[in-house]
Design a protein around this nucleic acid. Sequence first.
RNA 1: GACUUGGUAGCUCAGCUGGAUAGAGCAACGGCCUUCUAAGCCGUCGGUCAGGAGUUCGAAUCUCCUCCGAGUCGCCA
Length: 569
Amino acid sequence: MIEQIKLDLKKMLEQAFLNEFHTSVNVVIEAPKRIDQGDLSIPVFTIAKAISRPLPETANHIKKTIESSMISTLFSELIIMGGFFNLRLNSTAMAQKVIVNYMSNQNNYGDSTIGEGKVVCIDYSSPNIAKPFSIGHLRSTIIGHALGNLLEKCGYKVVRINHLGDFGTQFGKIIYAYQHFGDEEKIKKDPINELVKLYVEFHELAKTNPSMDDEARRIFKELEQGNEEYTALWNWFRKVSLEDYMQVYQLLKVTFDSYNGEAFYNDKMQPVIDELKAKNLLKEDDGAMIVDLGENMPPALIQKTDGSTLYITRDLAALFYRKNTYHFDKCLYVVGNEQKLHFEQIKAVLKKMGYDYDEAIEHINFGLVLQDGKKMSTRKGKVVKLVDVLNEAIKLSQAYIDEKSPLLEGKDLIAEKIGVSAIIFNDLKNYRANDFEFNLEDMVRFEGQTGPYLQYTSVRITSILNSEDFVFDGKIDYSILSRETEFEIVKAISQYQMTVEKAALESSPSILAKYLLNLASLFNSYYGKEKINVENQLEKNTKKHLLAMVRTILNDGMTLLGMQIIEKM
RNA sequence: GACUUGGUAGCUCAGCUGGAUAGAGCAACGGCCUUCUAAGCCGUCGGUCAGGAGUUCGAAUCUCCUCCGAGUCGCCA
């Protein structure tokens, strides 16, 4: 709502300057850093320069223009402060608008229509079969899930795709290892760990025995061509791995529309290769088939010397399949920073093939999960399992509950919701592209800018609202909402929708996360100095309206991020 | 070496299409529970925004150079 006012003001002023000075100026309107500087601020420097007038004259001109305009009633004060022109909003009028707007959208407050009629595919989570669900996949899962929710809130139709890493040379290696030194019983008992052991062992031995790599490649090639023995093993590995991942998805409450992984595209790659050939883009180089992408980018390797395919070949097949099946307007890939080049290459190949939707493909990159400042690697066996981290967080929140509210009913489920949500929020509160040092202590922290802080805030409000019947009836004393402390909260409430849209458009859940922290902090300060359940009925009712709106937003926002809402803690 | 990305308080990070006195949380220290949940609130301490030069009325933000970390650079994904 504030955004709308800014926009109206900007347009009005720019038009006025155009009319009077025949100059097109860019009027910038921002929020001042300090409350005593008003609600909105316009730096006058550039405008004065554009119309070649002194600062004071320009500022006065702005003042007169606003005073004589249709929107003058929106403001209660116009202040000239040095080179800045500051405005204070008419808080009563503003508060009324916010309440009316809220009452007419109570069940879907903040919903946006910017994505109506558009389809977005999101490729996220995508763990590698036969490997543990790592902390890196956790990031992809959490970010992708939140983005899906944000986009849906904005009206997009979202297709959630778990592009399982269920194919590739790694399977040649694991099958080789299994056949040479594997043990069926052990795998049945502890599938993923045993498979990882085999994989790690393979790499150890292959260091001194390079022919093993050739052998693994051969096995994978035969698997690709349908060898029955290998296919049976592959199916088994896939099945036990998926069962393992499902535990994590259930804990995180994450679901997908499609689990089509790389293997699904096994029979869809030849057409891609044929098309590349037909378009004269494929050329042989050292026995492999590549697409030359010019001097600024390394070539894309489409087919290996032995004829088997690569990651990019499968991703291209997947891309075409998605385009034809879902007719997406955007296709997002929630994948780590280290694959930046890969996606640039995909776009480049697509463009070379003559397709025009390369701009629709977006690599939603995220920071690497580092350990001791270095990338974690499965090959060295240094993997932190996600289930362990989640369980650790749940255990800690159980300890917290036992200490702080030992009589709480349904402790176990609440502990799970707090622990899991803490992990999710910890990941989403920071800008996704930054690297992420793995630190269990930080991940399960329960004080300060954390998931539990948001949940706690919501619970506090619930507790107050439930103390006696409350109905959102709009019976409000606006002189209370227009006071400085309350009005700060009203302003924040009015910015929810804009925040959701921004987070969705920039694929940055952290924007929403920071907003929620700020809103919660505003409430907690307020709670610290104002009593809500006061004698005066109208005052009490007014304050409860404010709280109800804050809670609606907190709960909705947390849900969008993938966190879970609780009523008591 | 080339390209990408980052360097802001002791730690984790916001702020980056140029705007006012650079903000939070954690840690440290001091207050606040006979009153709506103290997983909270209030306060104190903490800064050469890596370094240098430039553009500008104005630079953490833009440009260039240097230093440091990370990632990627054909047969892994």
